[in-house]
Amino acid sequence: MADERPADPLMTLKGVHTHIGQYHILQGVDLVLPRGGMTVLLGRNGAGKTTTLRTIMGLWAPSQGTIHFDGRPIGGLPTPDIARAGIAYVPETMAVFSDLSVRENMVLAARDGPIDKARLDWIFGLFPALRKFWELPAGVLSGGQKQMLAIARAIVEPRRLILIDEPTKGIAPAIIEAMILAFAELKRETTILLVEQNFRFAASLGDQVAVMDDGRIVHRGAMAELAGDEALQTRLLGLSLDTHQ
């Protein structure tokens, strides 16, 4: 396992265990997120990726270990406190309000007051469909457009870290191409921890990668290194990135 760690990381998880009922899901996760750019969390289904995001966000409390964000311990804090620290979470379920308009969804997410116009224009630049459907119910959006709205809600105010769980799942290829461009811009502004099964998407955007297996991190390093090494891909993931897109 590569072990080049940033001197001043944004977040560190050390020896994190999470139990959900009788199930021991995370079994000593060690993860370091550098400031800026995108870290991709890969692994087979059931490896513990979503549980890692939910544990960071305080939706599930760690049973052991520590989580530090910008040097401050946050493991086990209530989710609202973690969000106020500058961390946003986009779950796999998207969690948009279908009966509310796109505008109303965004207003609800802007907890610090009215949406800044310049920031809204920037978001429209990332996701032009949101401007088009601004006054329509979110329920009329396609799956890809709902995913765009979910991400836009997370970034309606500046965030220091965004946790995003499988944003391309079930999304049409044309929408995925548009999301690659949007994420390339977004990661210039903030730090992203991305869980993703579309390896082409992950490889095109990721700066760092961590691979999970059986509730632990088993590899970490540069995304470019993993993307260029089919033997390593097969050993860690069971498939090469080129064969699983």
Rank of each mutant, 00 (worst) to 15 (best):
F133T: 09
F133R: 13
E135N: 10
E135H: 10
L136A: 14
P137Y: 14
P137K: 05
A138R: 13
G139C: 04
G139Q: 03
G139I: 07
V140Q: 12
L141T: 11
S142G: 10
Q145A: 09
Q145T: 06
Q145N: 04
Q147V: 06
Q147L: 08
A150D: 14
I151N: 07
R153N: 15
R153Y: 12
A154H: 09
E157C: 13
R159H: 12
R160C: 00
I164Q: 04
I164D: 01
D165H: 07
D165R: 09
D165E: 13
E166V: 00
E166T: 04
G170H: 10
A172L: 09
P173L: 04
P173A: 07
P173C: 14
A174F: 09
A174I: 15
A174D: 15
I176C: 03
E177W: 10
M179T: 06
F183C: 02
A184C: 07
L186G: 01
L186R: 00
R188E: 08
E189H: 01
T190V: 12
T191V: 01
I192R: 00
V195C: 07
E196I: 06
R200Q: 08
R200M: 14
A202K: 03
A203M: 05
S204Y: 03
L205F: 07
D207K: 00
Q208F: 04
A210F: 09
